[in-house]
């Protein structure tokens, strides 16, 4: 039970990151390799705000995603857009390059050592069955709320309808006279903001260093593939699933626990080539 809970906390990060990746992929067709770097920027954003301006964690939780969202908007306008009509591989390489640049810029400034970030809540919560750090419970709650909110926006609002339509059938949506291009930039910015949010949430409980996103992004890609490329619901669910699988793996088969994600990915792909919640035609 405790381990499942651990897994859900890990899964919170996967879910937030995978959600961002999924909407970006769905809308732009961009496999955003820089997502891990944006996550890292989120954590560093919180750290820099704290040390340079004394801004506390709660404020950073709002400010950093906003700033990163803006950063994402600029990136999309300035760079991503220019390659949108080419083979997706170009944007993949672009975001890969961006990752290296961002990592190295921060390495130059802060080195590879982790930076200190004090926990905003240090109490533990009695959850009946066991005691758990309150902060981690907060992370889980935060992630669930955000995912639900995104789901609500996507499924119940007009904006969400357009985004979903544009994700699934961009040409057809255009044919209905909807300006799909107008939504591309904000969606990218939003995806980046989600990564930033995950980064801020990670700062108090994980090592804040320029490489923190690099290790994570591979797993998150696997999560998105398992969930079904472009499927937001699938990505979130797969995020939590992988969190739990990883946590149980840590306990029962430590040697395998990191490979487990990829074994699962391979199994899912064999069984459902489009992922758990993906549609086959999305592949073509």
């Amino acid at each position: 039970m405790q381990q499942v809970f651990n897994g859900l906390v890990s899964g919170s990060f996967y879910a937030l990151l995978a959600l961002g990746l999924a909407v970006i992929f769905g809308m732009l067709g961009v496999v955003n390799f820089a997502h891990g770097a944006f996550y890292m920027l989120g954590a560093f954003g919180a750290y820099i705000l704290l040390t340079e301006a004394g801004v506390n964690f709660w404020l950073a939780l709002v400010l950093v995603p906003l700033a990163l969202g803006l950063f994402g908007v600029i990136l999309e306008r300035l760079l991503i857009r220019r390659l949108a009509d080419l083979d997706p591989l170009y944007n993949f390489l672009l975001t890969f390059g961006l990752t290296l640049i961002l990592q190295d810029l921060l390495k130059r400034e802060y080195g590879v050592q982790s930076q200190p970030y004090p926990p905003p809540i240090s109490a533990t919560l009695d959850l009946g069955l066991f005691e758990y750090p309150a902060y981690q419970v907060f992370v889980l709650g935060c992630s669930i709320v955000v995912c639900l909110a995104v789901w609500f926006v996507l499924s119940r609002t007009r904006v969400g309808m357009i985004v979903r339509a544009a994700t699934e059938r961009p040409e057809l949506t255009r044919a209905f006279g909807i300006d799909v291009g107008r939504w591309v930039t904000p969606v990218f910015g939003f995806g980046v903001a989600l990564a930033g949010l995950a980064g801020v949430l990670a700062a108090p409980m994980r090592a804040v260093n320029p490489l923190m996103g690099a290790d994570l992004i591979i797993t998150v890609f696997a999560v998105v593939v398992i969930g079904g490329l472009g499927s937001t619901f699938g990505s979130v669910l797969a995020g939590f699933l992988i969190g739990v699988v990883g946590s149980l793996g840590n306990l029962y088969v430590p040697a395998l626990s990191q490979t487990l994600v990829f074994i699962l990915m391979a199994a899912v792909l064999l069984w459902r080539p489009a992922g758990l919640f993906g549609r086959e035609e999305a592949l073509t």
Binding site: Q3, N6, V9, S10, Q136, R206, A207, M212, D215, L216, G246, S247, N250, L251, P254, A255, S257, Q258
Partner: peptide, 12 residues
């Protein structure tokens, strides 16, 4: 207990 490397969640 051996742990995966690298690992970001030691709660287990």
């Amino acid at each position: 207990d051996p742990t995966p490397f690298p690992n970001d969640n030691f709660s287990t």
